[in-house]
């Protein structure tokens, strides 16, 4: 049995845990710069999480075990997803645990339980958030599957490690199908991770909240776990995108020397993704909830165009 993949695995999970808040910090910093404000620094989200861990928990009187169990489950599921996606190397022992479809289902577990926790307290806000979140998630799903379908047409696989290997080893070709799939994937990522224009992670305005409405009653370590998992979710969705569209630089099997280069490649890619995301968020306002179907409909359209162009052009 080789020890090396297990070390990489643990190293990667540690990187996900630490870099996810820093990535959020980077996005917030960029946003501040673009808006001419002073930023709180790259490490502020990390400090926020640490602070929350030391605070006491205040629970609503009616909260059941679902409410207390959810943060741990959401965190655990997200960490598992972080161990599956090839971020630094394709040589991960956990990578065969789930292909992309199962990976999306792992995020669905987290969403399912957060939605239940939102309904557990019995406030109108929680139910509102759950109802809207499940609506958006159901509309995002077909587009997501179509994007996966298009990607799997090229690499004949839905396993992310395999996709990375196929793309990096093949000759570089500009594929129109992949271009459409990237567009679709960006729109889906925005919807799934609750960024502007679908949801605003910074709002606590009653009628516009979606994700925040569900977790409104959380505090202390529970809130810390949920926030941390949320940050990891954005990080991991970005990683899925990088692995399926821009995998160059991810270390191959049994190649320890590629690892430092892989880290640098990853950092550069994430910096660029951050800039793109901030530009999107700055250019758009949050849309009405019933405009979201159109938004996700266009994601579905892009993905379908990708699939069709594969059959017609490639």
């Amino acid at each position: 049995m080789r020890i090396y993949p297990f070390i990489i695995e643990i190293f990667q999970i540690a990187i996900v845990l630490i870099l996810a808040p820093i990535f959020i910090g980077w996005i917030r910093m960029l946003k501040c710069w673009f808006q001419g404000r002073t930023s709180a620094g790259l490490f502020q989200p990390l400090r926020d999480i640490m602070k929350l861990f030391y605070k006491d928990v205040v629970l609503a009187e009616n909260a059941s075990w679902i409410f207390r169990f959810t943060p741990y489950l959401v965190f655990a599921v997200t960490v598992l997803a972080g161990g599956i996606i090839p971020i630094l190397s394709v040589d991960l022992p956990l990578s065969a645990t789930a292909d992309v479809i199962a990976l999306i289902a792992l995020f669905a577990i987290a969403r399912f339980f957060i939605a239940l926790a939102g309904m557990d307290i019995g406030t109108a806000f929680g139910g509102m958030g759950s109802s809207r979140e499940m609506m958006i998630a159901s509309l995002a799903e077909p587009a997501m599957l179509m994007a996966i379908f298009t990607v799997s047409l090229v690499s004949k696989s839905t396993s992310l490690s395999q996709i990375v290997q196929t793309i990096t080893h093949a000759e570089f070709i500009l594929r129109p199908s992949m271009a459409f799939a990237i567009l679709a994937f960006i729109l889906i990522t925005i919807a799934e991770t609750g960024r502007i224009p679908v949801d605003n992670p910074a709002t606590h305005l009653e009628l516009t909240m979606i994700h925040e409405a569900m977790i409104l009653e959380y505090s202390g370590r529970h809130l810390a776990l949920i926030e941390w998992a949320g940050m990891m979710k954005l990080f991991l969705f970005t990683s899925i995108g990088i692995a399926s569209f821009f995998p160059w630089g991810i270390a191959a099997v049994d190649n320890l020397f590629q690892l430092p280069a892989a880290i640098i490649f990853m950092a550069v890619k994430f910096c660029i993704v951050g800039i793109v995301l901030v530009l999107i968020e700055l250019g758009l306002a949050k849309m009405r909830i019933f405009r979201v179907p159109e938004f996700l409909g266009s994601a579905f359209l892009f993905a379908s165009l990708g699939m069709i162009s594969y059959f017609i052009l490639e």
Binding site: D56, V57, V58, L59, A60, E61, N62, I121, G122, T123, E217, G220, R221
Partner: peptide, 8 residues
Amino acid sequence: SAIHRAPL
């Protein structure tokens, strides 16, 4: 760390 129960 204590868990406080409070009205919602």
